[in-house]
Nucleic acid binder design. Structure first.
Length: 754
DNA sequence: CGCAGGCACCACGTG
DNA sequence: GGTGCCTGCG
């Protein structure tokens, strides 16, 4: 530990030891980025810099935790006082401390996307607008991007261009919705995700002395995954580090080639601007890849070379020969699931790759299902990341809504969510009255609920609800968070409802409620670090709620060991595995149909593909399917253009990609790559029949020796039919597909006779 | 006011 | 294939 620098390569050493002044580290995949970051902080502390003066911003809580653990190990001591975490969680921490300066209560709550959308829907309704003209999703993403670009409702109004574009686009009311949304969030004492950034910026802008306080504290700032920061995040970083007399000790680490969050406002302009903003910045490029074998590295370089506009670099490896990239071509998404499960078995048996070193990566979470099915069938343990997490379950969100009310009764979304849950006879009519009263009085919903004139019956019921909340608030203050939560879970009737229902479903929900209560207990009892390892300053219900709101997908992986990983490519950023399967490589899926319009979006998809393949250490498999289910319908897609962007010599079975496969002779894929075949675009449309002109024959018309067409498998010849009546099975040879011989249940088959 | 059943729309990715 | 919203009835 006396020499932290030993064991690093030359460039890494420089990136670690240059601690004064602005530094930009461009780090290719697998180039030891995390190592550099952790060693850099450890080195700083060893040089006598107080951890208290260091701010390290990462993308996930997990990354922050890992970093901290590793620093502690290197220094064999603690790093108390170091602030490391996500932008959102650290900024929320500052806002919690300074809330009163911007007119927020210390106990402000955080609206998640569902809350925001629900509020927007309410506002649209209040303004008597049609929800089809103002879909909540679009409104929210527009508002989010405005906030991220520091455009407030006021500056919006003064911007003729913006106002005009709304007129043209027939959404004149947008400005009204935006300002009302902002006002209502504030009135409810709530911040949405963007507010956690925007309000901090506002705080720094309005209160110079507070800004100074944090400037003096955070003398050294590090930002990980800088390519994924948006304009606002960078603006805050600049506020903290760029001012007259600033030491400008700022280090950003990133890789423009791995920028995959443009859709939420991230811009690689930030990387390009950094050098302009900090003219004296020293730039280090980490290009040696320690992770992957040569074919994978070569493929990555070939793919990313197709993008225009990027910082020049080329990753390289000194590793010897490794496996070539495999391709799987299948006829359906179902078969894709099966073939991949088969290959996983092969990896396990032949190469002894442990489960936790295997990952299946897809573009959209909806693709996970088939893989789940087959992994379960093969008894291979797996874990799915993303999709509905524990905290997104209905029963959990309901109880959390109650808890949110305990710390902030003004929280309008929480109030509406549970005022009539469990059912207590407070329906739309009553709530409309309360809402009207709220508008008339200009108060928050909670206050209005206490004074609104109502029918005696509604009043009694509403009072019962308010009483539970009041008692809960009281309990929280006197007895503590766990006791309050337990009280509310019972007094609200949630627990009773599930018990009474007494179905497997409801008992399962009850278990989840209990798990949540236990989670609160753990959180409160833990004295330093929560089970998730995220350092929190205080142990209160408010801190717990905030902590939950800011969890990231990668954070809940306590039992990841011994299991195969299934996740979206976005979720896989920063991770690595021995064996990677990138699935669903089809046009309209990956690249996504949303990106087909313009080159810029395709570039982002390509970077996503780049991220996907560079997760692999040794084995990489790419798969695509001719057809798959989407919205319950079969769709046919061509193979992804990205497949052709990898040079044939890096493929184990290149003919599968380059369209020359004859599929004759049993569809064997044993062809060796012929020299440096340059890729040809796949022009030939697949001979799969479109559903429109497809008229299946009835099953008893099918006879041996017939030529038939199958909706998915294409043309084939009936070799044999066995069984009788409903259990008749035809053995058919489909010469257009990979594994041509199939057995088809005639009862279900859709076959057209040629 | 509650509930059942029909429906539209959805879903690309996230703190 | 799922969810959340609307409608119409009891």
């Amino acid at each position: 530990m006396s020499d932290i620098l030993s064991g690093l390569n030359e460039i890494q050493k420089k990136a670690v030891s240059q601690i004064d002044g602005p530094v930009m580290v461009i780090a290719g995949p697998g180039s030891g980025k995390t190592r550099v970051l952790t060693f850099r902080i450890a080195y700083m502390i060893q040089q006598g810099i107080s951890p208290h003066n260091i701010l390290a911003l990462t993308f996930t809580n997990k990354a922050a935790r890992e970093m901290k653990d590793r620093i502690e190990k290197v220094l064999q001591g603690n790093v108390a006082g170091l602030w490391s975490g996500t932008f959102h969680s650290l900024f929320a921490r500052i806002l919690r401390i300074e809330a009163e300066h911007i007119g927020y209560p210390t106990s402000f709550t955080i609206y998640d996307t569902d809350d925001s959308k629900s509020l927007l829907r309410t506002i649209v309704k209040e303004l008597n607008l049609k929800k089809d003209d103002y879909p909540a999703n679009q409104l929210l993403s527009r508002i989010s991007s405005l906030k991220s670009n520091l455009i407030t409702p006021r500056t919006y109004e003064q911007d003729e261009k913006l106002m005009n574009s709304d007129k043209i686009a027939n959404r004149r009311a947008f400005h009204k919705i935006y300002s009302r949304y902002v006002a209502r969030c504030k009135q409810a004492g709530a911040m949405d995700f963007d507010d956690l950034l925007y309000r901090l910026y506002e705080l720094f802008q309005k209160k110079p002395d507070i800004l100074t306080k944090y400037r003096e504290r955070f003398k050294y700032i590090l930002v990980d995954e800088f390519q994924d920061t948006n304009f606002l995040q960078y603006a805050i970083i600049r506020k903290l580090s760029k001012y007259p007399g600033s030491p400008k000790n700022i280090c950003i680490v990133g890789d423009d080639a791995q920028s995959i969050y443009a859709f939420r406002g991230a811009t690689i302009d930030n990387i390009l601007d950094f050098e302009k903003d900090f003219k004296s910045a020293q730039v280090f490029k980490l290009e040696q890849n320690y992770r992957s074998t040569p074919h994978i590295v070569a493929a990555a370089n070939e793919v990313i070379a197709k993008n225009r506009r990027q910082i020049e670099k080329k990753i390289w490896t000194s590793q010897g020969e490794g496996e070539k990239i495999r391709i799987l071509k299948t006829v359906s998404d179902n078969e894709e699931g099966k073939r991949i499960a088969d290959q996983i078995m092969e990896y396990k048996n032949r190469y002894h790759v442990p489960n936790q070193e295997i990952a299946i990566l897809y573009r959209t979470n909806a693709q996970s299902r088939v893989f789940e099915d087959y992994l379960r069938r093969y008894n291979i343990p797996y874990r799915i990341y993303g999709g509905l997490s524990f905290y997104q379950r209905k029963e959990i969100k309901d109880l959390l809504a109650y808890l949110r009310l305990l710390i902030n009764p003004s929280d309008e979304e929480a109030f509406k969510r549970v005022v009539n849950y469990p059912k207590r006879g407070i329906g739309n009519t009553t709530m409309d009255k309360v809402m009207e009263h709220r508008t008339r009085e200009g108060t928050d919903l909670y206050t209005a609920a206490q004074t609104a004139p109502l029918s005696p019956r509604a009043r009694t019921q509403l009072n019962k609800f308010l009483k539970v909340i009041r008692a809960g608030i009281n309990k929280n203050e006197t007895a503590g968070a766990y006791e309050a939560a337990e009280y509310v879970a019972n007094a609200s009737g949630i627990i009773k409802t599930f018990k009474d229902e007494n179905t497997t479903e409801s008992l399962n929900r009850l278990e989840n409620i209990e798990a949540l209560l236990n989670g609160i207990k753990d959180f409160m009892d833990e004295d330093e670090v929560s089970e998730l390892g995220i350092e929190v300053e205080e142990r209160t219900l408010a801190a717990y709620i905030q902590h939950i709101a800011l969890l990231t997908d990668q954070d809940n992986d306590s039992e990841a060991e011994e299991k195969i990983t299934l996740m979206s490519i976005h979720g896989a950023k920063g991770l690595e595995f021995d064996a990677i399967f990138v699935v669903g490589l089809e046009e309209n899926l990956f690249p996504s149909f949303m990106s087909m319009e313009n080159e810029k979006d395709i570039d982002e998809e390509r970077r996503l593909f780049y991220v996907a393949i560079t997760r692999a250490r040794k084995y990489l498999t790419l798969s695509f399917s001719n057809s798959r289910y989407r919205y319950g319908k079969v769709v046919y897609n061509r193979p992804s253009r990205f497949l052709e962007e990898i040079n044939a010599e890096n493929y184990d079975n290149p003919n599968t990609v380059f369209g020359k496969t004859s599929f004759a002779g049993g569809g064997a894929e044993t062809t060796t790559p012929s020299a440096r075949t340059r890729f040809k675009p796949i022009k030939k449309k697949k001979t799969i029949v479109a559903p429109a002109d497809f008229t299946p024959a009835s099953s008893d018309e099918i006879k041996e020796g017939m030529e038939v067409i199958h909706q998915k498998f294409g043309k084939g010849k009936v070799l044999k039919i066995d069984g009788r009546n409903d259990s008749r099975v035809a053995t058919i040879y489909f010469n257009e597909i990979d594994t041509p011989q199939r057995r088809i249940m005639l009862k279900f088959a859709k076959l057209q006779i040629v």
